[in-house]
Write a protein that binds this DNA or RNA. Structure first.
Lengths: 121, 121, 121, 121
DNA sequence: GTGGTCTAGACCACA
DNA sequence: GTGGTCTAGACCACA
């Protein structure tokens, strides 16, 4: 679980943020639940604690989790994870499609791509 | 012309590649035409010559432009710019939409976004 | 009673010290009275016994309470709680106002803040 | 310049943030100006580059400076430094004064403290 | 040279 | 044990 792509251009800590946001927004992890400690998760993922720390702090800044020094990190209530994720994704799609339009892709072509993605899996 | 976003996370040289590919594929610049020299363009854009150089090299590697030592850079004929651009954009869209699907966006929602983009401008 | 903010940056044991000093100096708890045991208070507050222990020790060191081995903790007479508290608070205010002055807040502005606080509640 | 207290309980990177915000809001550093590089400032202060980096990133997140990868860090225009600083300080003062009120300090006493601070220097 | 990310590992206060 | 900060130092892409 929590697959990382160490080769990717997107930093590990950002991948972590995205993956965890997804897990939370999908209900795999739910409100109030305790997250693995920074060190434990780092060990499991074969990654440096600082990297996990950075991801956790960013998630906290976005109100998705909260950390209590000396106790651990927990999933915040009033789950903003999903909304934040969706907003990010929608703007990513908008950007990509805008570029497509500028490049000369027609609307049917773009919609074709969308259909394809939703047909798979 | 040739607006760059110096703050953006996508490297300037990539922005340059995209913008120039677009201009070529849209016919703003056409086959055989000479491009501004690396240094001239760098000066105009307020950008490091290395950066422009990198963009030109990449464009040449993709057969979109060609350089003649001592004379300058020119737009290649048999314009592949458009196809290359489209391929890139299609994979960007695919990626973004896939993420959207994973996040729980429904197909109608995504198509809504597409409609929106094509309605504007 | 005894509201704690587990999220706050100021350690729980310090919050405990402040709150208890306040209660004592306000006469809610009075001279000679017995305090709840470390364990009982910890349980009631949902907090680690170590934390309560630390607060009690600090309060004892300041002569605000005293502990009798095997019997419990009691409120000291000749209540110094209030003076200690005030001293601490005065230096906190001094520090904050000094920073305000350095930042460019004018004296009337600061006094405005003070007025505001004393107007409420 | 830029005195740090390495012993202090407030982290170095936070001290850096505050000091730099002050310098900017006081006009010592002004809009568009380039800041010392992460490494240079770290060297000058005898501090690890990561620590400076953290401060710079926080300042960027607050819109006080902006960083261009490969070029450097610059002071943002539309100086929000001052407002952010003042807001922070005002809430610090409010908090301290509220505690003072709760502790039994009278309004004249608190105002006395304020007068004192503004008399010095 | 410049910012950004990351590892390895230490130390601290707190729980 | 737990989060938070920090050092020392490496590597990368970019300018």
């Amino acid at each position: 679980m929590l697959q990382l792509d160490l080769q990717s251009r997107t930093p590990i800590y950002e991948q972590l943020i995205t993956k965890m946001s997804e897990m939370i927004s999908l209900g795999v992890l739910s409100s109030g639940e305790q997250l693995p400690s920074v060190r434990a998760l780092a060990r499991d993922l074969g990654v440096n604690p600082n990297t996990v720390q950075k991801a956790y702090q960013e998630l906290e800044r976005n109100g998705i989790i909260y950390s209590v020094s000396g106790k651990g990190s927990f999933i915040a209530s009033g789950n903003s994870a999903n909304e934040i994720l969706k907003k990010q994704t929608v703007s990513k799609i908008t950007e990509a499609v805008t570029e497509g339009k500028r490049t000369g892709l027609t609307k049917p072509q773009v919609i074709g791509v969308v259909e394809l993605v939703y047909k798979e899996g």
